[in-house]
Simulated scan of single mutants.
Amino acid sequence: MSATTETPHTSEAQGMAIKAKTQRQLVVRRFFRHRGAMVGMVLFALVFVLAFSSIGFGPLPGWWKHSYDVTGTVIAGGRPTLTVWPFSLGEHPFGQDNLGKDYFALVMRGAQISIIVAVMIGLVSTLIGTVIGALAGYFRGRVETLLMRFTDVMITIPTLVIAAVVGMIAGNLGPYFLAAMLGVITWTGVARLVRGEFLSLREKEFVEAARAVGTPAKRIIFKHILPNCLGVIIVSATLAISSGILLESGLSFLGFGVKFPDTSLGVLINEYRSAMTVRPWLFWWPGIFIIAIALSVNFIGDGLRDAFDPRQNRVRG
């Protein structure tokens, strides 16, 4: 008869795994009990599905019969045919623009580009900010001084000003390149948050123990410290996406963002801002979608922040 001996190391590893699993379950439960986050998720999902399924994306076809780049005859002054009761989309639910293009298809294309650009800005800025913040917070000394002084210089430059310069240079190269360049200049907030987390965690006992046994710095950063910063990083990424769509809309409104022949919600507002008094639907529809996307992402970020915060003992409902 053989007996199984459980070493202290194995017992400690199992205990950490159980604790991590319990913490994940607690975070998920807190998030799904947050009403604002649930409303934000539903709203964002509706906008996302409507935008990408209606007119299609890339090789995937959509269910809407009109295309955003096909002109036509302006019918009834281009007024919207959407009716709430009895519900009916009609031929052109959001109306038509000056060239007879279906405005519903145009707004859906604008929403697609705005969402893609915002998500890319959030991901790129979070990646860069995480790397810079982690290096500055862990290594300290000259590395921290160099990286944080560079961060301070970037912070002193107004974001809209430098984004406008980037937009003038990168706008004609397509929305994806524009989004990547905007992400390169909007990482400073994430870097400062991640640095603060690393400064706190690098002094913890588990990090000191890892150093004592000769664990390489790379492994300590990625296996020990970074997993404990995921909450801050995920919340920062969510809020960066919300800021990204507002930044892109603002730049496109000023003429420094997405360029013809493509479009975005900000471009549509810029093109038809003069029609607000005579044909207000050309201004309000893209504005409504900008507000809906920004608010829904903010609600999701608020729910994630409350879920990851260990000081929360209840979830606001």
Rank of each mutant, 00 (worst) to 15 (best):
I221E: 01
A191Y: 03
K218L: 11
V194A: 06
L246K: 10
K223N: 13
K259Q: 15
V165F: 14
S243C: 03
N228V: 08
S249W: 06
A275I: 00
G189E: 04
I220A: 04
I234L: 15
I162S: 02
R211H: 11
R192L: 06
G174W: 06
N172M: 02
V194I: 15
G250K: 06
Y272F: 15
I245L: 15
K218Q: 04
Y272P: 08
M181Q: 07
T263N: 04
L201A: 11
S200V: 07
L173H: 11
M276V: 15
A179L: 09
V278I: 15
L173P: 00
G183M: 07
G183I: 07
I241R: 00
T186P: 02
P261R: 09
A212L: 14
E248N: 07
R195M: 10
W187I: 02
G266Y: 03
R219D: 13
R192E: 03
A180F: 13
F256W: 08
L239N: 01
G255Q: 03
T215I: 12
T263K: 05
V161H: 00
T186A: 13
V278Y: 12
H224D: 13
S236H: 02
R279C: 00
L268S: 05
T238H: 08
S252P: 08
G257R: 09
C229I: 05
M168T: 11
N270A: 15
E271T: 14
G183C: 08
F253E: 01
N270C: 00
L251Q: 09
P280W: 07
A240H: 01
G183P: 05
